[in-house]
Nucleic acid binder design. Structure first.
Lengths: 154, 154
DNA sequence: CAATAGTTGTTCGCATACAAACAAACAAAA
DNA sequence: TTTTGTTTGTTTGTATGCGAACAACTATTG
């Protein structure tokens, strides 16, 4: 604790001598911005008004179907409340369909419809291009490094 | 340009022979997840129910005040609609105050209140700890590398 | 000056994102 | 079997995040 007295240099000045705090020097700020740019690129290039999360859910389900709703949420890193909304909207578009699980009264079994399949085939090359465009400022080595570092802090 | 002719290697065989598309191999997926973890750490550690965006707006304004609402939005990479909501909530908490700009009838001049200052001082060390915790899986060199790569793709 | 163009702030609608609380169904243990 | 605990899905509330359209005001140009 600094002494209560001595007005002169009550300046317990550097109290740690820490450099000034700047938001724009914190990782969180750059993570948010980089993600924003990526989403922006995705939205601009992708067809069928698909969002990043919808695309993630759709293609992931196509990999691992059949699958319950919450399980798909875990696979795509989405909250139970979030995945519900995403699935609802994909079902409304007829990209996914749901059916009750005969073996488990709680579960909804999800699967990709033909329309969903068609949407994937229609957009998968674009999705690859989105990744390419997002990473375009980086060299090949930097790209691998970035993904690896992101994986480490996830 | 490739020559138009010569069937020989017309073998665009597998139509690209591309590896299977996996969402969890795309940067976007990892950007989203890394950001999620950071926000989660932030929410768990920070006091006063401050969110990442509120903290960014508050501390940035403290740096550059006085400042208009849209300008603060640009400085913190927030949409005009987004910054309005953030500012409204910070004003409701009395962390910020607004005043009409005498020289420009459109502008709202924003400034940080004493309560806002106190909130910053109360949480700035925690904010530093949040960054530290987010980057904890990385070495010092990796941390600098990550921020640099994120900056490049922003 | 008058017409045009750009800026600032507002509002609406849609889509994540997550905490929290809840009911129904299943699983494990007493 | 009954109790306890867990999992699945739902709903509510709050907070970004952005496209799009809009009014009010300022700046620019003819």
């Amino acid at each position: 604790m600094a002494s209560i007295s001595d007005s002169e240099e009550v300046v317990e000045v550097e109290e740690g001598a820490q450099p000034a705090y700047r938001v724009d020097q914190q990782v969180g700020f750059h993570l948010r911005q980089a993600n924003q740019r990526h989403v922006s690129i995705f939205t601009g290039m992708m067809g069928d008004r698909l969002t990043t999360t919808q695309w993630a859910a759709l293609t992931k389900l196509n990999e691992i179907q059949p699958c319950s709703q919450n399980q798909l949420g875990r696979e795509t890193a989405m909250d139970v409340a979030t995945i519900k909304g995403v699935v609802d909207r994909l079902v409304a578009r007829r990209y996914l369909q749901t059916a009750p699980d005969p073996k488990d009264g709680r579960r909804l079994v999800l699967s990709v419809t033909d329309e969903g399949q068609a949407a994937i085939e229609r957009n998968v090359d674009i999705a690859r291009a989105v990744t390419e465009e997002t990473l375009s400022p980086l060299s090949s080595a930097e790209r691998m490094m970035l993904v690896e570092l992101l994986r480490k802090i996830s």
